[in-house]
């Protein structure tokens, strides 16, 4: 079928992720790669530490991406990218995009030192973290990106995670990184625009992508996009960007947030939470969102009525 002739596509048509990859049904991480590569194009090198994508890409000798890919150790996404960048620059191949592609464990936890180092040096790399909020590849263990209240195999129901999710974007902003943004696989146009923007910027850019995981979240595969969008419309995961660590822009301003309960109740990982605990999450989500709106200079304060 000649696509794009009868319908105007809102995202690039080029497909650099092939079928036959090994992802689970409804995997957000796979959509993440598909959209990111649409924005990046063929002239891209990926380095991937241990994460779901170490498996998704396929076992040797198979691969499901049409760009060069270097698998590397867990904590080295950013520094391997720095090395690739330096090598390309010295060899006169500076126009190639260098992308460090890691999950939340490899970014928020074990890889944060190398990420901070590369960002402080302002190495010309794009770092994309697909965040499924736990170590999904090793079997759903908690990471510092796991939110308050979530069940994981290392935070069992009787001892669910009590600490909030690490605010990595703020940490990146504190580095005065030229560009950092959040995006959701539920909004590909916004995500692709951000990758394209990152591509044009000289220096380090960091994208934090919200990426549903049906096996890890105990959610239905067909609900992944709905969840990725609900995370935004409930203000659980706002999509915004920060330039030079200072200029905040909220890309999707939610004037009337939907109750966070609608997002939580579709996921088995939150099933054990009491109403009071859910209300606590709701309160924190709104407080954080209003803080964000303030940082973005928006004269707006949102509310969600908590039903007793």
């Amino acid at each position: 079928m000649e696509r794009g002739k009868t319908m105007k596509l809102s995202i690039p048509e080029e497909e650099l992720v092939g079928s036959g990859h090994l992802a689970c049904q409804g995997c957000g991480a796979t959509l993440c790669m598909r959209y990111a590569l649409k924005a990046l194009g063929q002239n891209t090198i990926l380095d991937i530490p241990a994460c779901c994508w170490s498996v998704i890409d396929g076992p040797f000798p198979h691969t499901s991406v049409k760009v060069p890919l270097f698998h590397t150790a867990f904590e080295t996404a950013a520094c391997v990218a720095s090395g690739i960048r330096a090598g390309l620059d010295v060899l006169g191949r500076g126009e190639t995009n260098v992308v460090a592609w890691a999950g939340d464990g490899g970014t928020f936890d074990i890889g944060i030192q190398a990420l901070s180092g590369a960002t402080e040096r302002n190495d010309n790399i794009i770092y994309i973290c697909y965040d499924n909020e736990a170590y999904m590849n090793t079997g759903i263990q908690r990471s510092s990106a796991t939110p308050y209240g979530a069940w994981t195999t290392t935070t069992p129901v009787k001892h669910f995670k009590k600490m909030p999710k690490k605010d990595l974007v703020r940490i990146m902003a504190a580095h005065r990184i030229p560009y950092t943004a959040t995006a959701s696989v539920g909004y590909p146009e916004d995500f692709i625009a951000k990758v394209k923007k990152a591509k044009e910027i000289q220096g380090t850019t960091f994208l934090h992508i919200f990426s549903p995981c049906p096996p890890g979240w105990k959610s239905q595969p067909e609900k992944s996009i709905q969840l990725a969008r609900l995370a935004v419309s409930t203000c659980y995961f706002p999509v915004y960007e920060i330039e030079n660590g200072e200029k905040y822009t909220v890309n999707k301003v939610i004037k009337k947030p939907r109750p966070v309960k609608e997002f939580l109740e579709q996921q088995g990982r939150f099933r054990h939470l009491t109403e009071e605990q859910v209300n606590g999450i709701q309160k924190n989500v709104i407080v954080s969102y209003n803080e964000l709106l303030k940082k973005a200079g928006l004269d707006l304060e949102v509310h969600v009525e908590i039903k007793k």
């Binding site: 080295t76 090395g83 690739i84 010295v90």
Partner: peptide, 26 residues
């Protein structure tokens, strides 16, 4: 040459690995 002043020896070897993988002498 490009000199990357990394934040650890672990990253030093990792950066050399990345550079070597694109064909640079490291």
């Amino acid at each position: 040459a490009e000199f990357i002043k990394v934040e650890s020896e672990h990253s030093a070897m990792a950066a050399c690995i990345g550079a070597s993988a694109v064909g640079a002498r490291t």
